[in-house]
């Protein structure tokens, strides 16, 4: 399902001052436009403070826009009534960066993954037993076992928690997934497993991915298209191969050069 971001600007409120106050507030997003085609993986690259997290919050309408529109299959997300918004949220899900902070520590895995089914029970109409079955199916889908069902998040490793987060995001059968740095808190080895899982799920379920990362290697591995964002503005966007092989902007070139290459011969310190 395609997502269109049209001229989105987000300014965080100017500090309340007099009418003559010059303070314009903080421009977190400045005229950002993107098109995410259905079934593809779209990467968004940026450093901290570039506005990438604000953009996801704007897409999910956890934040209001100052200007612009966010269209999901042609419907303006920010123009929806609360009830329709709730329905839409079942189809547009997010996986967060920090697998430790994004799961409620007081809930069992079963309750965490079942929560979307409870929130949207008007859509799914499942009995308690059917819900539990669906939770089991989801856990299996992300590579966890049934004995994990009634354990608490703190008993799991970072990688397992991220799988739980993915299972929760998939529970309401979404067709669009925002992945907000889903692997940057994980070890490289675990990152590889999670990336492969995401790739497999996309093929099985026909998902559209909006993948946010600061790791260009990961973006290159998983994404078809990529956009580079810097201080709230899009620097450039296009197919992954094109942007990475022939970056047009200085900023992208700098980012590529700063990525530490695991080949010792490419170290800038060992030129001698």
């Amino acid at each position: 399902m395609s997502l269109d971001i049209l001229n989105v600007t987000k300014i965080f409120g100017p500090a309340r001052g007099g009418i003559l106050s010059r303070d314009e507030g903080f421009r977190a997003l400045d005229d950002v436009s993107l098109h995410v085609p259905k079934g593809s993986s779209f990467g968004l690259v940026g450093e901290s403070g570039s506005g990438k997290t604000t953009l996801t919050r704007c897409i999910l309408r956890l934040e209001n826009l100052t200007r612009g529109r966010v269209l999901y299959e042609g419907t303006d997300i920010h123009g929806l009534a609360q009830r329709d918004l709730r329905r839409l949220r079942a189809r547009l899900q997010i996986v967060f960066q920090d697998p430790y902070a994004s799961l409620n520590p007081r809930m069992t895995i079963h309750d965490i993954v079942a929560e979307p089914l409870l929130i949207h029970r008007d859509l799914f109409r499942l009995s308690a037993r059917q819900r539990s079955e669906r939770v089991l199916e989801l856990l299996e889908q992300v590579g966890l076992r049934s004995e994990h069902l009634f354990r608490y998040p703190h008993e799991f490793s970072g990688g397992q928690r991220q799988r739980i987060g993915i299972a929760r995001a998939l529970a309401s059968r979404p067709d669009f997934l925002i992945l907000d740095e889903p692997t940057s808190a994980l070890d490289v080895s675990v990152q590889a497993d999670v990336l492969n899982l995401l790739h497999r799920l996309q093929q099985e379920l026909g998902l559209t991915y909006f993948f946010i990362s600061h790791d260009l290697g990961v973006i290159r591995y998983i994404c078809d298209d990529v956009a580079v964002i810097y201080r709230g503005k899009l620097v450039e966007q296009g197919p992954v191969a094109e942007i990475f092989d022939r970056p047009r902007s200085d900023y992208t070139r700098m980012l590529l050069a700063a990525m530490p290459d695991p080949d010792p011969d490419k170290s800038p310190f060992r030129q001698s």
Binding site: L62, R89, A101, N104, E115, P116, I119, G165, R168
Partner: peptide
């Protein structure tokens, strides 16, 4: 401000559920 609260909001949870299920137990 915790992320699992944002997660619950993104799932479509209302204030009653967020307070009762996510905030108060913690």
């Amino acid at each position: 401000e915790e992320q699992f609260i944002t997660a619950a909001r993104a799932l479509g949870a209302g204030p009653g559920r967020i307070l009762g299920r996510h905030i108060l137990p913690n």
